[in-house]
């Protein structure tokens, strides 16, 4: 695939002509997709930014007014918002760090000379494809303090005496939300890192070994530098997904206990559909959008930079 990719990027002169002549076809081919993308994604996004400058409510019980940056000022003066933003950041960073380390470990193991790699990869992928609702409820069940498997196992191993209500305390729920998200995302990290590891050439590693490098040296000085780009790429993506995530926390804890596990998406959702402050909710979500824009520009810079 790699080779053909290269030849596709540098077509001969005749190819160039062949595709340049029909430039308008490119646009025609893109029309169906862009009908969806513009009307459902882009336009509402712009509308959302517009809405964030108004006092719009879900029920039109107040005259609509343009209030400029008032919503944003309120957001930034809101103590609760900073608490939620802090947890969202901790949630995303915690997920990224733990799932990266786990994923790297699994990828290194799977990159060793093992048989049945396909089967291992298939089992590895399972947590990643499990629907969000199922993830939430199997974890809720496993963490249950009366019949949950985790409490039963910990008790029979003699590690704890009394069952723990993992999701009952704010601290516990916060930690468990991260654990569940790590469980969901580490397979992705592992798969991407495995693909990265497989592209490190054996010859370079051999050369390093001949020069007297031990296994750790080879890893530290040969493999890791090669993995830098791919690591940055997948950690940034998991960070973005975790930062934006709604269902994995919402379904697991519902934001509770006592709002301890509110992430920004949940906070914006409740502001909009429970407290009905659409203007305020969209301004909060637009703050998220701007932050994500910055992170994704960073992402673009990593991926478009030459790999070496």
């Amino acid at each position: 695939m790699k080779n053909t990719n290269k030849s596709a990027q540098k077509p001969a002169a005749s190819h160039k002509k062949f595709y340049q002549k029909d430039w308008f076809i490119a646009y025609i081919l893109l029309i169906p997709a862009f009908l969806f993308l513009f009307s459902i994604r882009l336009w509402p996004m712009v509308q959302g930014i517009g809405m964030s400058f108004t006092n719009r409510r879900l029920l039109n019980d107040r005259p609509l007014k343009f209030i400029a940056f008032d919503n944003y000022i309120r957001v930034f003066h809101d103590k609760e918002f900073w608490g939620v933003a802090g947890y969202t950041l901790a949630y995303a960073l915690g997920t990224v760090i733990c799932s990266y380390l786990l994923g790297l470990g699994v990828a290194l193991l799977m990159n060793m000379k093992i048989r049945y790699r396909g089967i291992f990869r298939m089992i590895l992928m399972i947590p990643w494809v499990v629907p969000g609702v199922v993830t939430a409820y199997i974890w809720k069940y496993a963490l249950n303090d009366q019949i949950g498997i985790i409490n039963i196992m910990l008790q029979s191993l003699g590690l704890i005496k009394k069952p723990i209500g993992f999701l009952a305390s704010p601290q516990g729920a916060r930690t468990m939300a991260i654990v569940v998200n790590v469980w969901k995302n580490y397979p992705y990290m592992a798969l991407v890192m495995l693909a990265g590891l497989q592209s490190v050439s054996e010859e370079i590693k051999d050369a390093a070994r001949i020069d007297g490098g031990g296994a750790l040296d080879v890893f530290r000085y040969v493999v890791m530098p090669e993995l830098r780009t791919v690591s940055m790429m997948c950690t940034t993506l998991v960070f973005i997904w975790s930062f934006n995530s709604f269902d994995s926390v919402f379904l697991l804890t519902g934001g509770g206990p006592n709002k301890a596990t509110y992430v920004m998406s949940i906070e914006a959702y409740f502001q909009a559909f429970q407290k009905m402050n659409l203007g305020y909710a969209t301004s909060m979500a637009t703050v998220m959008l701007i932050f994500m824009l910055v992170v994704s520009l960073f992402y673009m810079r990593i991926t478009s930079a030459p790999p070496d």
Binding site: L37, L42, P44, G48, A268, L278, L289
Partner: peptide, 20 residues
Amino acid sequence: FLLMLQMFPTVQMIIPLYIT
């Protein structure tokens, strides 16, 4: 643009979408 779309929070555009 396609790549960026994947990175923006869904909540942000879901509120206007609901109204529409």
